[in-house]
Each structure stands twice: as structure tokens, then as C-alpha cells.
Design a protein around this nucleic acid. Structure first.
Lengths: 146, 146
DNA sequence: GGCATATAGTTAGTTATGCAACTAATTTCA
DNA sequence: TGAAATTAGTTGCATAACTAACTATATGCC
């Protein structure tokens, strides 16, 4: 495999510090400019709940690639802002179902519009095949390591 | 441009949560298993100093894609562990030059070996052109947003 | 039934990130 | 020359990350 010809530390720097944080910072900034007081981390949780409401915390861990304490505290903060509510599951008393409030549902269109604008800006000059390659590589890296 | 056919939130999830943190977590774990008590963030600073010693904090901001307070505190912690030392610049008294200690120089070979192993594992089944595409896309995204 | 094991979630402690506001030194330029 | 603007670095505050250790509920199996 030709991997050994690659400067790995360089890719490490790139992956860990550059594009993801540039996108995240810009999206966060756009939220702020629009007067929205949520963090991108909180938004990424809401994003999954908009696709499917009332997920367990464990399910949110899986879908957002976070560990349990991180989700616990993100949900704590989202609950403080009255954007989600913890509901006890009836079938398994260990489980909290995390459900959207009306306020969170109203955020959906505005923030997704901002995210789309931000991603459009970020992806100027990047074609579809390149995006597919990035996604495939990331999936492969993730699968290799978990 | 075909970007509008792409589900942007999906890429956002991928970029923000998946591969980079999987790589970071694995590298951090490998450091721990080897008995090395440094964080990957600290390592990424050392990595740039191994390439060129005695950089200013501002230069480290640029090279590691971090802001000034982050570098200030990373250097604080590295200094506590006696891995770097702040040296006042003679030509400009505003500047701290961050220089490696002997202890940090001894870490270089061991940790770079671990990073190479980790990246090899992460990149199994990913070919050179795909890596080049990822790097190019990330550079483009970064340039688009900064 | 009851004990061992697994799973869901929380808490504590340390590190890191981002922003805003600050000090100190340097540069610009009228 | 000297005031204004710029640059380097620090500090305070809030949020978020990971690990390890914890509680509570559910499941497996003898």
C-alpha cells in the first residue's frame, strides 16, 4: 500500500485542526450573528432529533459520535434553555428519551438554512466526487479504528 | 456546481464528529498505553516545534490553527510538565519564543512512531489519491472560510 | 429465585476551546 | 516627536471533551 509514502503527522494536523474547526467556527459565528444562542454542539444534537424525535441518550451518543458524559451535559444545557425535555421511557426505566420542545421545532428551519449557506460557502470549488471521497475516507477511518 | 445535490448536514456530522475524533482518541489512547502523559493537543504543538524549534506563540497559533488563548494555556501546561520553556525574544520584547527542553526532544521518536502506527491503522484501505483529495478538500474549505 | 453481568445514565476531575476584554510593546504617520 | 493603530500575549468566563468511578435498572443463567 502506498500509505507509507505519506507524511502522517501532516494529515493529522489537517484532520484535527483545520477544516472541521473552520466550518464549525463559521457556523457558530453565523448562529451568533443571527441572534441564535446555541452552540454548534447543541445544534448537532438537535439536528439528529429533528430527523427523529425522542431518542435515548445512548442513541444520541452513537449518532453524534460522543460519549455518555458529553451527551449528559449537552442535554443538561439544552434542557436549561428549554429546547429539549427528558422523558422516562415506559418500557425501560433506565432510559431517558430526549424530546424536542416547541421552541426547538421552531429553530429547525432557520438553523438548517444557516447550515446550508455555511456549507455552500465552505464547499465552493469542491465537486461532488471529491465530497464522496471525503465521506468514504472518513467512514473507512472510523471503521478502522472502532 | 453539483453541491446543491449534497446533504450538507450529513457532511457536517461526518466532518465534525467522526474521523478526526476517532483518530485523536486512538492516538491519545496509544500515548496512554505507552505510559506517555501528554494530550494529543500538546503533542500537536510539540510536533511543530520538532520541525522548527523556538517559534513564537503567534506562529504556533498559525501552524496549529488555534487561537491565542488556546496556545497560551497549552504552553502553560507544557511548561508545567517541563517540556517547553518560554524565552523572551531579543529583537521584540512582546514575543515569547517557545523552545523545547531535552525531555521533549527525547519524546520525539517514541511519539512519532506511535502516531505513524496509529495513522497506518486508520488509513488501511485508503489509497494515496484519496488522501490527496481529502487534503485538497480540507485546504479548500479552510481557504474558503478564512 | 437469586447472583453475576451488562446497560443507561450521572458525577467528579482535568484539559481544551472560543470570545471578549485587557496590558504591554511596537509601528505608522501626521 | 508623539498620538493612534497594530501586534503579542494573558486573563476571565462559559461550554465541551475524555476518563474513571459511581448508581440504578435489566438480563442471563444456574
Amino acid at each position: 500500500m502506498p500509505n507509507n509514502q505519506f507524511k502522517r503527522g501532516e494529515l493529522y494536523s489537517v484532520i484535527n485542526g483545520m477544516a472541521s474547526t473552520a466550518v464549525a467556527r463559521r457556523l457558530q459565528k453565523n448562529f451568533r450573528l443571527a441572534g441564535l444562542e446555541i452552540t454548534i454542539e447543541q445544534w448537532s444534537v438537535l439536528y439528529h432529533l429533528w430527523k427523529e424525535d425522542c431518542l435515548s441518550q445512548q442513541e444520541l451518543c452513537t449518532r453524534t459520535f460522543r460519549d455518555k458524559p458529553s451527551i449528559t451535559r449537552l442535554i443538561d444545557n439544552l434542557e436549561k434553555q428549554k429546547l429539549v425535555k427528558r422523558m422516562p421511557s415506559k418500557s425501560d426505566r433506565r432510559i431517558n428519551l430526549v424530546c424536542l420542545t416547541e421552541a426547538a421545532k421552531e429553530l429547525q428551519d432557520r438553523t438548517i438554512e444557516l447550515a446550508n449557506q455555511t456549507m455552500s460557502e465552505a464547499l465552493i470549488g469542491v465537486n461532488k466526487e471529491e465530497i464522496e471521497t471525503v465521506k468514504a475516507v472518513f467512514q473507512r477511518v472510523y471503521d478502522n479504528l472502532t
